[in-house]
């Protein structure tokens, strides 16, 4: 007797349950390691606390100081404007050089797989190692200056990290070099997703290679560009690994490499010039202000994804 047992739940309920189960580990991990610390910043930002010892509740004083006190406000504005410049250099490099290289890799060039590996190689390297290597590379007595002097391009070494005019851009280029592989792979996957029949149709209509790229490939790459822009924006406004490793918390010369991450770190731990003004509350307040500034970008990405769905 083949009596099929009737289930208590509908197919739709089971499907939703499965989806929830699949999402649960990610949500838990994100909640524990990202969302909870983010929420903890709110109460911490209301304290005056050097990281040890008693905590003093100061209400919104930390925010008032950052936005109202000239000493802190100048630092905030300086760090913020330089962070924007830092971001523009990086994203500009990614979109121009990254797209160019991704396009070259999309052609059926001999050895392109090897090129892909070579371009991607720096990405898995530790930030500290990259900072150390590139610091040596641009040193006044390093290989870059030596080569330029050898070819007669310059008369004396350029102090890439010692000049206010070049230090921030040099650090942004370090970042770009390190993460370029990531941008190339994202853009390349976008290019490879372009339907062949669209390209063939454009060719049949008489378009040359550039016209096909411009009118068929680039419009398809839009989502990849947005994704890269948002990921990089969130990253460069929250992290300052290269600056901290190479220039220290003082972000010299003359704070010309100061960005939000170094400002935040300096507020939490003081700086190398024997500052005793360490306050985790101030640091949390800076973190929250940064979060509020980059939140629109994160929301934009989320909404974009919903729309695509």
């Amino acid at each position: 007797m083949n009596e099929q047992k009737q289930t208590r739940f509908s197919y739709r309920t089971i499907k939703n349950f499965q989806r929830t189960l699949l999402l649960l580990p990610g949500v838990l991990l994100y909640g524990i390691f990202n969302f909870t610390p983010l929420m903890m910043m709110v109460p911490t930002s209301l304290l005056d606390w050097p990281g040890i010892g008693p905590k003093e509740f100061v209400g919104l004083d930390n925010f008032k100081k950052i936005l109202g006190n000239e000493y802190y406000r100048d630092q905030l504005l300086n760090a913020l404007s330089q962070n924007v410049l830092f971001f523009i250099v990086i994203i500009g490099t990614f979109l121009v050089i990254g797209t160019s290289l991704a396009l070259l890799l999309s052609f059926k060039t001999y050895g392109r797989k090897y090129y892909q590996i070579i371009y991607f190689l720096p990405y898995p390297m530790a930030g500290a190692a990259v900072a150390y290597l590139l610091n040596l590379f641009v040193n006044p007595r390093g290989p870059l200056n030596a080569i330029m002097m050898q070819f007669g391009l310059i008369d004396s070494p350029i102090p890439f990290l010692g000049s206010e005019d070049t230090a921030l851009t040099t650090l942004a280029l370090f970042y770009s070099w390190h993460r370029m592989g990531f941008a190339i792979m994202l853009i390349l996957s976008g290019i490879l997703a372009v339907r062949i029949d669209l390209l063939e149709a454009s060719m049949l209509d008489g378009a040359n290679r550039w016209q096909s790229i411009k009118n068929v490939v680039f419009p398809v790459l839009g989502p990849a560009f947005i994704l890269i822009t948002v990921i990089i924006m969130v990253d460069v406004f929250n992290n300052a690994d290269y600056t901290l490793l190479i220039m220290g918390a003082e972000a010299g010369p003359f704070r010309s490499t100061d960005i939000m991450g170094t400002f935040l770190y300096r507020s939490a731990f003081g700086a190398s010039a024997a500052s005793s003004d360490a306050n985790f509350g101030m640091s949390a307040a800076i973190g929250l202000i940064t979060t509020i500034m980059i939140l629109p970008a994160a929301l934009f990405l989320a909404l974009k994804n919903f729309r695509n769905k």
Binding site: N139, P140, R141, S156, P157, P159, F160, L161, G162, S163, G252, P253
Partner: peptide, 16 residues
């Protein structure tokens, strides 16, 4: 002095 003191860190000084 070295031409670019602001570009030279402690390690560069000792190396020189």
């Amino acid at each position: 002095m070295n031409a670019t003191p602001l570009a030279d860190d402690y390690g560069a000084m000792r190396t020189g």
